[in-house]
C-alpha cells in the first residue's frame, strides 16, 4: 500500500525531516481573523509550529482556542489571513488528497455504502484497485460490512470506516479533529490502539486535535498546548515515554508528571478564557 520503506520507527523528537520523508508541516506566522470587515474575531494569532515528517503531534487546548482553525488551514479549507502553512516546503493553497482529514462527527457519506466510501478517494485519484478496499476494511475489522450503509454501523465502526477511507488514499499527513471524542471509553481505547498501529507501520505524519490531556500524552510524540483565543502556542511538551505504550503507562510517575504539566497550562488558559468571556458579556 505505501511505497515508503517499512521500518520500525524511532520516535523523532526534534522532527527534523530527512530528505526521503514526506509530510513535514511548517506553520509560519499563521493568523486567522474571521469577519475581518466586521466583528474581527481573531481565532489564531501569529502562530508558529513545525511538525516533522512522520511525527505524531497532539494539539491540545481549551474549547474555542482555534485548534480546529489551525487544522482547517493545514487541510486547505481556510485561507490564512496572514502567514502561511507549508507542507514539505510547498505553500498550502487548497485541499489535497495527500492531507487526509478525519472529522469530529463522522463524515462518511451516508448515501454511499462502506465500500463505496472507502473507494471514493481512489476513484477520485488514480482509480480503484480491485480488492484493495476490502483488504483495508478487513484490516480495520470491518469485513462483512462492505455493503452496509454508514447508518447501519455503530459509532466505533463508523470511525474505523472513516479511518479506512482515509488510508485508502495513502495520505502523507493525517489531520484528525477530535476523532474519538464521541466514543465510549472502551471503543476509544481500541481506536487509539488501531491508530497507533497504522501510524507506526505506514510512516505518516499525524496531527491529532483533542481536549483530552491523557489521550494526547498517550498517543503523541509531542503535545502542543494552545492558549485561549486568540490561539497561540503556549507550551510544547516532549513525551519521552517508550513505545509501544500500553494503557498501564498512565499509572507511571513520568506520565503523571507530564499530565500535571499539561493540565496546569490548560487550567490557566481555561480560566483566562472564562474571564475573557465574562468580560465580553
Amino acid at each position: 500500500m505505501s511505497n515508503q520503506t517499512q521500518t520500525t520507527r524511532e520516535p523523532t523528537m526534534e522532527g527534523e525531516p530527512t530528505p526521503e520523508k514526506t509530510g513535514a508541516i511548517d506553520i509560519e506566522n499563521l493568523t486567522k481573523v474571521y469577519d475581518p470587515e466586521g466583528e474581527r474575531v481573531v481565532a489564531v494569532d501569529d502562530m508558529d509550529l513545525q511538525i516533522g515528517a512522520e511525527e505524531f503531534v497532539a494539539l491540545l487546548g481549551p474549547s474555542g482556542c482555534g485548534k480546529s482553525t489551525v487544522m482547517n488551514c493545514i487541510a486547505g479549507y481556510l485561507e490564512p489571513t496572514e502567514g502561511e502553512v507549508l507542507v514539505d516546503g510547498n505553500r498550502v493553497s487548497g485541499p489535497d488528497p495527500k492531507r487526509g482529514v478525519v472529522f469530529q462527527d463522522n463524515r462518511l457519506f451516508p448515501w454511499k455504502t462502506i465500500q463505496e466510501n472507502v473507494e471514493f478517494g481512489p476513484q477520485m485519484n488514480d482509480g480503484v484497485e480491485e480488492g484493495r478496499a476490502r483488504s483495508i476494511l478487513d484490516e480495520m475489522g470491518l469485513d462483512g460490512f462492505e455493503d452496509a450503509y454508514p447508518s447501519g454501523l455503530s459509532g466505533g465502526m463508523q470511525q474505523r470506516a472513516e479511518l479506512a477511507r482515509l488510508l485508502a488514499n495513502d495520505p502523507d499527513i493525517m489531520l484528525m479533529d477530535e476523532p474519538f471524542s464521541a466514543l465510549d471509553a472502551l471503543t476509544k481505547e481500541i481506536m487509539q490502539k488501531k491508530l497507533i498501529e497504522v501510524w507506526e507501520r505506514d510512516n505518516r505524519t499525524v496531527l491529532f486535535i483533542t481536549h483530552d490531556v491523557e489521550e494526547a500524552i498517550l498517543l503523541a510524540d509531542r503535545v502542543v498546548v494552545m492558549t485561549a483565543r486568540p490561539g497561540q502556542v503556549k507550551d510544547v511538551i516532549d513525551v519521552d515515554l517508550d513505545r509501544p505504550r500500553d494503557p498501564e503507562v498512565v499509572t507511571t510517575d513520568r506520565f503523571t508528571e507530564l499530565r500535571e504539566r499539561a493540565l496546569s497550562v490548560i487550567r490557566e488558559e481555561a480560566q483566562r478564557a472564562l474571564e475573557q468571556e465574562e468580560g465580553e458579556v
Partner: peptide, 22 residues
C-alpha cells in the same frame, strides 16, 4: 453540511465530482 464537501475535497474530488458525489 460543509464538512461533507470538505471531506470529498480532501479525498481528491474536484468541483464537478463534489457536485456529483456530495
Amino acid at each position: 453540511e460543509v464538512e461533507f464537501s470538505r471531506a470529498a475535497q480532501s479525498l481528491g474530488a474536484g468541483s464537478f465530482q463534489t457536485f456529483r458525489h456530495v
